[in-house]
């Protein structure tokens, strides 16, 4: 899966890899450069690092590492036999997006841990719920220690961890990150089935579809243009969740009109030239400083007289394809009605 095609609210190297990148990056400047420019090489490096971590950090106090590892692998193989019809008793989620679905659907006590990003308000709509769960760093060794019956995670995300876990005999279910409004009900139902919570999932998916249909039914006439403009001037274009949300809420996505596929840099000058009606920028609340955050706040954007700039969607609501995305759709629809009311133009 190519980097650009990953339709998420955040640059895919981040979304996909920054957990591991932070943990596994040890080589300083050179590896930083490699990390940024050569994701494929980075993945290779990271898998090496993960293997190394797995070997050297096994909690074998006083024991002989060399002899215990094969024994541990044997134990694992017996532990993770196919679950059969029984719903899995111990489920672990390694990705902030699967976290949302799992937290929303799991039976009490069923979810062993969620990713540490689940507690980030900007990324995780259910960040309050996440406080009730232990968090993991998405490392193979986290999983190894927790010994879950089922691991849910994203494709791309921690790709090598996934391979490693599968090799070690864990049951890993991956959720695609090519997410749009269409994939959300499907993902909800799939998670419900995996967790043995089909009824709850069906109710949630149906509610989502109904809410979405209601908004879409209220659309009319000419569509205002909108641009979802991220840190460092990256726009969310065709195939992204944001694109489908904007369309559903009655906007034209400027990035898509300009031929942006997935996430790609969008020159500031073009934003000024095309004068979108709204520019959706990341909320700046409580963020640690970064230079990239200055780009969506550039004075050139503020100088556009008729353009509204703001966060507009509830914090974290459209960072993952989950039930919370409906909140983003509703918020943007309200904004759209304010800009160009359907009642005024029949």
């Amino acid at each position: 899966m190519s980097e650009k095609a990953a339709p998420s609210r955040f640059p895919s190297p981040l979304r996909g890899g920054w957990t591991a990148a932070k943990g596994g990056r040890t080589g300083g400047v050179l590896s930083a450069v490699l990390n940024a420019y050569l994701p494929r090489l980075r993945r290779t490096l990271r898998s090496g690092a993960s293997l190394w971590l797995l070997r050297s950090h096994l909690p074998l106090k006083g024991g002989d590492r060399a002899s215990v590892l094969p024994a541990a692998l044997l134990t694992l193989a017996t532990l993770t036999a196919p679950a059969g019809a029984q719903p899995p008793a111990r489920v672990m989620s390694l990705n902030v997006c699967t976290d949302q679905l799992a937290m929303a659907l799991a039976a009490p006590g069923q979810l062993v841990s969620v990713s540490f990003l689940a507690r980030e308000p900007d990324l995780s709509p259910l960040h309050r719920e996440a406080e009730r769960y232990p968090v993991n760093r998405g490392m193979a060794e986290d999983v190894f220690l927790a010994r879950p019956d089922l691991v849910v995670t994203g494709t791309y995300t921690l790709h090598n961890t996934t391979q490693l876990l599968k090799r070690l005999g864990f049951r890993v279910e991956e959720f695609s990150f090519v997410q749009t409004l269409d994939t959300i009900p499907r993902d909800i139902r799939r998670m419900g089935k995996l967790l043995g919570r089909e009824e709850e999932a069906e109710a949630m998916a149906a509610e989502f579809e109904a809410g979405l249909a209601e908004v879409e039914a209220s659309q009319c006439g000419p569509r205002p243009t909108a641009l979802a403009y991220e840190q460092n001037g990256v726009a969310l274009g065709k195939g992204t969740l944001a694109d489908s949300v904007l369309t559903a809420a009655g906007f034209k996505n400027l990035a898509t009109e300009e031929g942006v596929e997935g996430m790609a840099p969008f020159p500031l000058e073009l934003v000024v030239e095309k004068k979108p009606d709204i520019v959706i920028v990341p909320g700046s609340k409580g963020d640690a400083p970064s230079l990239g955050a200055f780009v969506p706040r550039h004075p050139a954007l503020r100088a556009l007289p008729a353009t509204r700039i703001g966060a507009f969607v509830p914090r974290g609501s459209w960072s993952c394809g989950g039930p919370a995305v409906l909140e983003a759709v509703k918020a943007l629809n309200a904004l759209r009605q304010e800009i160009a009311s359907c009642e005024a133009s029949p």
Partner: peptide
Amino acid sequence: NPFASYEII
């Protein structure tokens, strides 16, 4: 800030 580490470039 998760974006910060990419600003090394």
